[in-house]
């Protein structure tokens, strides 16, 4: 159902949710916004077209969390986590898509990550569509969009003084019970905004045959060219909403086995105990990062594993731009006969 939400009543509505849920929404931290729990004194960030710097995957896969506790006499038990029912408000469609993509890895039949899955089950996600294009985003290029529903429970469209609220699930509807129903006219107005936002997003690169080109040019010196200025840090992967690699480490003093975000851009990521490293330089690591998103995800779930949020472009310390890298990939040779 579609509702109308007056912006000045938002604070009260959010506070009312706190009775039954932990409420997370983007709030100001230093110079950027960050998903943080709502408190009585939280100040809402209004009109910040920036997405949060850390993607909301962190709400489901924290940067650091215990997996296993070591007990006395060499035993093990599951690390306990109190996971509360939550509402995540203000998640952008690119990030919501990313979380849904990650479900395909963390929630597989007979092979379920218990912590990811419990957090997903206990979370209601309310999206905020992007009516203004952001500087570095390219969601429409990779097949997504500024008002994509993904599996959001509800989504807001900014209409100035009000939001149009579209609800897509019972849980989503439950959050907005009692709000006035949006008129046909207002709904159409919102649809116009959504369409116009979609149309304003530039085409950052062509995706036709991109997978095949990257695959067929696995050994090309293209990879040397595009990785040349890479520093080998983890910014692009840590801030990426679809990157999910983690390391498992024993923290002896805590008597815990923990997982930490990890990055295929680090030297130690693939370094084996024998000293052999299948990805010895930034060339192979860059190839892995791009191929994972633009080749392997497609093989696995037939979707590009990049939702075009643009964080890697915006925050790369040396200005490496995946859009430019992929535009360049489009100039690589390609043989149709080899394409699968």
């Amino acid at each position: 159902m579609n509702h109308i939400l007056e912006k000045h009543t938002l604070q009260d509505l959010l506070q009312s949710w706190r009775q039954d849920y932990d409420v997370y929404l983007p709030q100001k931290m230093e110079n950027f916004s960050h998903f943080m729990p709502l408190t009585e004194t939280s100040v809402l960030v209004d009109g910040d077209p920036h997405n949060t710097r850390i993607p909301p995957k962190a709400l489901f896969l924290p940067m650091n969390e215990a997996l296993v506790k070591f007990t006395r006499f060499g035993g093990y038990e599951d690390a306990k986590h109190e996971i509360q029912s939550r509402i995540v408000f203000g998640i952008r469609p690119c990030d919501a898509q990313a979380v849904q993509l990650l479900d395909t890895s963390f929630i597989q039949e007979d092979n379920i990550d218990p912590l990811w899955s419990e957090r997903r089950e206990k979370t209601i996600t309310i999206g905020l569509g992007c009516h203004e294009p952001c500087q570095t985003g390219f969601c429409t290029t990779v097949g997504y969009g500024p008002f994509d529903r993904a599996d959001l429970d509800a989504m807001l469209t900014d209409l100035g003084e009000t939001y149009l609220v579209e609800t897509f699930s019972e849980a989503g509807e439950g959050c907005f019970l009692g709000l006035p129903v949006a008129s046909e006219e207002i709904y159409n107005q919102a649809l116009d905004i959504q369409r116009s936002a979609h149309d304003q997003m530039p085409v950052a690169f062509e995706t036709e045959n991109l997978k095949g080109k990257l695959e067929q040019n696995f050994k090309s010196d293209y990879w040397d060219t595009v990785s040349q200025s890479c520093l080998g840090c983890g910014v692009c992967t840590f801030l990426c909403p679809t990157c999910f690699c983690f390391d498992i480490v024993d923290e002896t003093q805590r008597r815990e086995r923990v997982r930490n975000w990890d990055s295929c851009m680090f030297r130690t990521y693939s370094l084996e105990a024998s000293g052999h490293n299948p990805r010895p330089s930034r060339v192979e690591r860059t190839r892995q990062r791009l191929s994972h998103k633009y080749v392997y995800w497609l093989d696995q779930v037939n979707q590009i594993g990049c939702t075009g949020c643009g964080r890697c472009v915006r925050y790369c310390p040396v200005g490496l731009d995946i859009r430019a890298m992929l535009r360049q990939a489009q100039t690589l040779p390609f043989e149709v006969s080899h394409a699968a």
């Binding site: 890895s105 690699c245 990890d262 084996e272 392997y296």
Partner: peptide, 24 residues
Amino acid sequence: LEKRMKCGVGKCGRCNLGPQYICK
């Protein structure tokens, strides 16, 4: 095949080889 592994259940990404995970 052998590759560095961590989780052993196809989640941590480490032993990724193309669309496959060696562990899984």
